[in-house]
Design a protein around this nucleic acid. Structure first.
Length: 263
DNA sequence: ATTAATCCCTGGAGGC
DNA sequence: TGCCTCCAGGGATTAA
């Protein structure tokens, strides 16, 4: 999504910004401040799109589960809108059916009121991401799955990619993070990098809502090994993939390849 | 301070 | 066909 936006938005001026079908609140804060500012760039940290503005503020966008950025007024559930300078397309619509997304202006680029963004782990595809740092971030009694989902040991992993990465390195998703060995952390780090790189190269994973800016679907869903494959054979050993509930999330794993030590 | 559970929200799927 | 219940999940919030 960022790659689409960066070809379009810099350095247009926001002529008007506002909420549409969304209540006032922290998810749509300070949008009026964007009016009159230029969009300097389109950056990303974890799952957050960060658009620095010429007045020192930052437009923060999180797509949540069902968020889509559109160049035309499509259908229902348009939560916010930008009117832009320059030739068409010069309107940006934020459509978010399930309302898990957000679209707000961080004044003076201060993210301290956005908890997850404020304490976000390293970018997985940057040199800041290391096996030793990952291991340090996993020193908790919480499950490896919960830890990888909370964005602190590393940024950007959601439920799909966590299941895929843990299957790749044969770690049970309920394993307490502090039981992960350095050797496992090294493999996990590599698996995360490989899976995210491949997913990005495939244009992402479209299960239902996700679309690129141009409306296309991703292709990585075809490459998924365990996510959404309950009852189908494990690509490694043929055992049926099972689905369980770990960290309040649907979790897919191979009961043979990903045993839980001790019990 | 850490960790676990709850809640938000809508559309689609499945049961009857 | 229509009504009902359940489920999906990122992350903020509340509870323990």
């Amino acid at each position: 999504v960022r790659r689409g936006l960066v070809e379009w938005l810099p350095t247009r001026t926001i002529l008007e910004a506002g909420r549409v079908d969304a209540p006032a609140g922290p998810k749509y804060r300070n949008l009026e401040r964007a009016t009159g500012q230029d969009i300097l760039d389109v950056n990303r940290r974890g799952k957050y799109l960060l658009l620095p503005l010429s007045g020192g503020d930052t437009l923060v966008i999180h797509l949540g589960m069902s968020g889509v950025i559109r160049q035309t007024t499509s259908e229902k559930h348009i939560r916010a809108c930008l009117r832009l300078s320059g030739p068409p397309p010069n309107k940006l619509y934020f459509q978010d059916t399930r309302r898990f997304g957000r679209f707000l202006v961080a004044i003076d680029s201060d993210f301290s009121s956005i908890p997850t963004l404020n304490r976000l782990g390293p970018e997985p595809l940057s040199a800041d991401f290391s096996a030793s740092g990952l291991l340090r971030g996993l020193q908790s009694r919480a499950s490896i799955k919960a830890l990888l989902l909370n964005q602190r040991p590393v940024a950007g992993l959601g439920n799909i990619y966590v299941d895929e990465a843990l299957w790749e390195v044969s770690i049970h998703p309920a394993l307490p993070g502090k039981q992960v060995t350095l050797n496992q952390a090294k493999k996990l780090k590599s698996a995360i990098v490989d899976i995210l790189s491949a997913a990005i190269a495939s244009g992402g994973t479209t299960l239902k809502d996700y679309r690129t800016l141009s409306g296309g679907e991703g292709e990585f869903q075809r490459a998924l090994r365990v996510y959404g494959r309950t009852g189908l054979p494990c690509p490694r050993c043929g055992t049926r993939i099972i689905r369980s509930l770990i960290a309040q999330r649907g979790t897919h794993s191979c009961p043979k390849c990903q045993p839980l030590p001790r019990g």
